[in-house]
Design a protein around this nucleic acid. Structure first.
Length: 570
DNA sequence: GCCGTTTTCGGCCCGACTGTTTTCAGTCG
């Protein structure tokens, strides 16, 4: 049982109890625990097996520890099963309809016997919902539309797509009269790998004018709500956008508030109330007196906190670090000196060797590694030993002509099913950088997959394990593998792991990157570029690294080429 | 259900918008 499964079960339970009208704080406790568990780097199943106390996790006390242990040991949760006897589980579907929360779901169930999406749609079509107290024609129509939209609900939007949508909208808003500062907030600003919706913040003395300008934005498919300072839109892409206007003196407070995360905000608001202060989106207040709000820094300073990079705002240790003055100095794009994973036309890339070199030099890099596929990936025109040696000779000749730039000879060699490598040792040992990765047999058991990768790491010539979990965002889960065991194995052997910066991969994910840092395994942030413009994905990889608390020293490709060569010799 | 330098009970983040109401409940973030 994975942490995500436990979190999902607790969220189900929270929703059921919420519909039943249970104590709201009890419900919140379940939800907050689910959130903690989902982002916890260690498997709770393993903690239980090793008899480590779950109460060490924030928001998990004796009771929840007991329930989680039951769930892990038996695969069942008695309280949830009992709740499902009292209420039809189909009610949980109804909670996914926006505009329907626990109260209305209960009301629909009690008054009309509605207990699933189909029944909801039917009742709405027949006009039976509008008769309920607190409902009306508009609500009924809205519910019907939402219920039908759920049938083909878009998944969360990938970070790169969300960035593009936000940049376009911000460019539009910059032309609004009276717009002062504009910023994206929310999970986009925190750099999460996917976002549920966009939050855009504008400072202006004139909210209505900004909102009027917003309504002419050509990408709008639907206006969900439209107020003087806040509007919600759906774009043609399906992405939902919240735009909010505040006075410029409140911009910092609002930016802080709307960047979240929710768990982080709750924690800092609590810190404020402990000090007799109050934080809202307009500022930080002592009674009715506004103390600050123009910038995030001045708001946080009032509760004795240093400014916290948005990527860290998940209430997972950043507040303690900010209080103690031990916040990490996160790696930045400027720290990156080169890119250690990319392809050329020799295998499945779109650009030739020299094109990739020129593109890398334009980015200010000092080196790159050329890492085409190995022979087993025939589909990708993978290189055998002979072709790889030819490429190495070509690179040697190119390096003769280059000044202040080094092309490292590399390969992305396949890990075969038994953990052996797809090219013979005598050619691997001639490489400057050996990237190695899984491209086949994704469905081995966790034990087999982990053993396979550890065996590959026993080869003395490999250096960087690429896209270690193989997951594709909104695509596939990735192969089952014990990342902690892989990281410990890498630590023992002087091997590194990759944060693959392809927007659909971002693999390692943030929590594993943080675990790597804790274990002391350096990571390479690599674009796996198959074309020159894909070298630009580096920024996404850096964001992911920052979410994993990585500093410059934790990242392989912040090193000089000389340092790098030393680290590649095992 | 969690939590504790006002500690074992009594708190628990807070405001905008909508649709339904005549002053507010529910939802959302």
């Amino acid at each position: 049982m994975q942490n995500a499964d436990i979190a999902r079960t607790l969220n189900r339970l929270a929703n059921m109890l919420d519909i039943e009208g249970a104590n709201a704080f009890r419900v919140r406790a379940y939800r907050s625990a689910a959130q903690t568990i989902e982002s916890h780097p260690r498997a709770l199943q393993e903690m239980v097996a090793l008899d480590e106390p779950l109460t060490e996790l924030a928001g998990i006390g004796q009771d929840l520890a007991k329930k989680i242990t039951e769930l892990i040991n038996t695969g069942r949760l008695t309280v949830l099963e009992e709740a499902e006897k009292r209420l039809p589980p189909g009610l949980l579907q109804l909670m996914r309809v926006s505009q329907l929360g626990p109260r209305r779901v209960r009301q629909l169930h009690e008054a009309l016997g509605i207990d699933n999406l189909e029944a909801l749609k039917k009742a709405a079509l027949e006009g039976r919902i509008r008769a309920l107290e607190g409902f009306g024609e508009k609500t009924e129509a809205g519910i019907l539309k939402e219920a039908e939209r759920l049938d083909d609900a878009p998944p969360r939007t990938r970070l790169d797509e969300a960035h593009q949508a936000a940049d376009d909208l911000i460019a539009w808003l910059e032309h609004a009269r009276g717009a002062q500062r504009i910023s994206a907030a929310g999970s986009l600003r925190r750099g999460r790998e996917t976002v549920g919706d966009l939050d855009i913040l504008v400072s202006s003395e004139d909210g209505p004018t900004i909102m009027t300008h917003l309504m002419d934005y050509p990408e709008i498919a639907e206006v969900v709500s439209h107020g003087k300072t806040k509007s919600t839109l759906r774009l043609h892409s399906g992405l939902q956008v919240d735009v909010r206007v505040v006075a410029d003196e409140s911009f910092g407070a609002a930016l802080y508030y709307f960047t979240g995360s929710q768990a982080h905000n709750i924690a800092t608001r609590k810190m404020a109330t402990d000090r007799g202060l109050k934080i809202n989106e307009y500022g930080i207040y002592k009674g009715r007196q506004r103390l600050a709000g123009r910038t995030e820094e001045e708001v946080l300073a009032r509760i004795d906190l240093a400014w916290i990079p948005p990527e860290l705002r998940e209430n997972s240790g950043e507040l303690e670090a900010a209080l103690e003055g031990t916040l990490p100095e996160l790696v930045t794009l400027d720290d990156i000196r080169g890119d250690l994973h990319m392809h050329t036309t020799a295998s499945d890339g779109k650009a030739g060797l020299e094109d990739m070199v020129h593109a890398a030099r334009r980015r200010g890099y000092r080196y790159i590694a050329i890492t085409d596929h190995s022979q087993r990936l025939a589909m990708a025109n993978g290189l055998d030993a002979r072709r790889l040696r030819e490429q190495m000779a070509e690179i040697d000749a190119l390096n003769e002509r280059l000044k202040n730039f080094t092309v490292l000879k590399g390969n992305e060699v396949d890990i075969l099913e038994d953990g052996s490598l797809d090219l013979p040792d005598d050619v691997l040992k001639e490489l400057d950088v050996c990237v190695f990765s899984v491209h086949s047999k994704f469905n081995l058991s966790r034990e087999q997959q982990t053993a396979r990768i550890l065996r590959a790491m026993d080869n003395p010539h490999v250096n960087i394990l690429a896209h270690p979990t193989g997951r594709i965002i909104n695509g596939r889960e990735g192969h089952e593998v014990d990342i902690e065991a892989v990281l410990r194995g890498a630590k023992e052997r002087g091997i590194f792991l990759e944060i693959n910066a392809q927007p659909a991969r971002l693999d390692l994910a943030d929590r594993w990157a943080r675990m790597a840092r804790d274990i002391g395994v350096m990571l390479a942030i690599s674009t796996d570029a198959h074309a020159t413009d894909q070298l630009g994905h580096m920024a996404l990889g850096v964001t992911q690294a920052r979410r994993g608390w990585l500093e410059r020293k934790d990242v392989l490709n912040t090193r000089t080429v000389t340092q790098l060569r030393k680290l590649m010799r095992r």
